[in-house]
């Protein structure tokens, strides 16, 4: 991979499940093309997909900004949704506020944030009730990067 930075942004549309996951899917394909390690690709794809779906399900969509350089993938997903009142509670596996219609689709099992935490190397969530949420995911593409950041 070269030393350049690839920047790309995606609009995450509100309540549109037909294209939910498109942004994550594009990023996954980009990483594969760039020759990233399959395990890192998987970590990125899963954590970003969960964040993307959360924006669709809970926040009327949002935007995803992605930066890829040779050391890492950085993903920022911003929404102007309702915010998360109790982030600690939301991070607990099994806790969900998703409506039944969403749960019937197989989403809303309360695994989104835990999956992000599990697969991202760095996860930062800034949220304000009534204003929105920003999720920042970093996945390091080289194993020795963790110590340096």
């Amino acid at each position: 991979m070269s030393d350049g930075i690839i920047r790309k942004s995606f609009v995450i549309p509100a309540n549109d499940f037909t294209i939910a996951g498109e942004a994550s899917s594009s990023v996954k394909k980009m990483l594969i093309q760039l020759g990233a390690d399959p395990q890192k690709v998987k970590k990125t794809a899963i954590s970003m997909y969960e964040a993307e779906l959360n924006a669709v399900i809970h926040a009327n969509g949002g935007v995803a900004e992605v930066e890829i350089d040779r050391h890492k993938v950085f993903i920022r997903i911003k929404d102007e949704g309702p915010g998360i009142p109790d982030l600690e509670l939301a991070m607990q596996e099994g806790y969900t506020t998703a409506p039944d219609s969403i749960r019937e689709m197989g989403f809303g099992a309360g695994m989104g944030l835990p999956n992000m935490k599990r697969y991202a190397d760095k996860l930062e969530i800034t949220t304000e009730v009534g204003k929105g949420t920003v999720v920042e995911i970093t996945v390091f593409l080289t194993d020795n990067e963790k110590e340096d950041h």
């Binding site: 499940f17 037909t18 939910a20 996951g21 498109e22 994550s24 899917s25 996954k28 998987k42 794809a45 899963i46 997909y49 779906l53 689709m105 197989g106 989403f107």
Partner: peptide, 16 residues
């Protein structure tokens, strides 16, 4: 194997 038939099952399959 899944009983879901909506379009997002494809996205999940792509991811993994």
């Amino acid at each position: 194997i899944t009983v879901h038939t909506h379009v997002n099952i494809v996205a999940v399959a792509v991811m993994v």
